[in-house]
Amino acid sequence: MELLLYIYAQSDDGMAQKLENTGRVALLVLGCPEVPVQTSIALYLMNLLKHHGIRPVIAGTKSARMLLEVADIERHYLGDLLDLDHCIAEIVEKRMDADLCFVFIHKESGISYAATMSSISRAKIIALVFGEEAHELAGQITFPCEKIVARAAHNPTPLRGKLDELAGGW
């Protein structure tokens, strides 16, 4: 957790800047893990990011983080793990930021987090919308971001395919 805080520091003009050449950083914002594909796709995405030289950082609820930690006990895929509220505070106070920000959305509160990230972070926002109401939820997103939408709850394959397509541009 501490390492991330050394990546960015506040400059005189108040903007977060990189202190050292650490490469690109992607933030994965995870809410309540009640839809099964969330943990699976988060692990898949972290691996994909690492293969493209992008460092994954998880900001999630306690249960979302715990599911990942237990699934990847030897940390083959997991990057840094941050508490979601702490991460929001750090970005608002310009003590950290990222290049890419994937927000996992399967209920309206996920849209609230994505809208907040879109407002407070300079990262490119990618909304990963899934679950039974994925298309209805995606229709409520009116702020600028890239959307990846799949009506997936138990089967991660549609989301995986779309992430593979997206990664082609990295």
Binding site: I88, I91, S109, S112, Y113, A115, T116, S118, S119, F143
Partner: peptide, 16 residues
Amino acid sequence: VPPGYHIFDVYIIGIP
């Protein structure tokens, strides 16, 4: 207020 507005010890999450 903008998203991330600080009130007491929380940062407000939401859609503007």
